[in-house]
Amino acid sequence: MSTAQGYNFAYLDEQTKRMIRRAILKAVAIPGYQVPFGSREMPLPYGWGTGGIQVTAAILGPDDTLKVIDQGADDTTNAVNIRSFFQKTAGMATTDRTREASIIQTRHRIPETPLVEGQIMVYQVPIPEPLRWLEPREGETRKMHGLAEYGVMQVKLYEDIAHYGHISTAYDYPVRVNGRYVMSPSPIPKFDNPKMDNSPALQLFGAGREKRIYAIPPYTRVESLDFEDHPFQIESWDQACAICGSADSYLDEIVTDDKGGRMFVCSDTDYCGERVAAGHTGEEQAA
């Protein structure tokens, strides 16, 4: 196995990996609870996925196949950077295919292709505390989680409804895990929230700068917070993907000229490519 000279397999030293592994086990045992961990400086800047990278580095082995996505795509700069980090330090086999991956590290999306048992999702998390915008103090938010006092969050969402007629959070939409902890799903669009519920895959979350790890075990109830008279709703588009014609995937809006011209394409490039390979076409392709 080729790994970078002078560094351990997957960069982290063994003691650091053990520390992170212990934190992951506690995170799995307490779904949605943020476990503090001794996050290390990584050779990538804080805010660029250091939490996800540390989690991935602590779990991955030579038998794994790694997929890294940012904004749903394998070819965005952050994804390229992180993938090459693991190729260099762990000699990892990598893939663009959701189906072939055993570990998927992601920033801001959950793949459209349904996940299966045995896969592990690793989310990069900037601000792990869902209550942070309502209460800046860690001492206070920790108490609120301890006592499951989530009234402020309900009030905030309700005020949104009073003001705008609906809840104005479009991404990083808070969820409740296994009926107990309110958790940040990371800044995925709320479109992806339902994919977290009862997922066959294990979901791990790493926040490097904020030094927290949390988890959702497979087959665990994950509800997006809402109200009986204002049920949770996801984004929808009038358009279908211009490349593959998918009408139910999350779309990126591409500005094609400076006169208001736009087109919509799948954010998940692997999903889109797979559909095209299977013979599906969108407007753009047909034209």
């Binding site: 800047p45 952050n78 104005s168 990083d172 995925i188 669009p189 779309l251 809006e253 954010s267």
Partner: peptide, 29 residues
């Protein structure tokens, strides 16, 4: 400053998925 610099500069990373979510939301509002 290593934490602060990283997080400030992470704003340079693509955010178009979340921006799209906000666009849909603002149009709806």
């Amino acid at each position: 400053n290593v934490e602060a610099s990283g997080f400030t500069q992470h704003l340079k990373l693509p955010h178009y998925v979340d921006f799209q979510a906000e666009l849909v939301m603002v149009r709806r509002m």
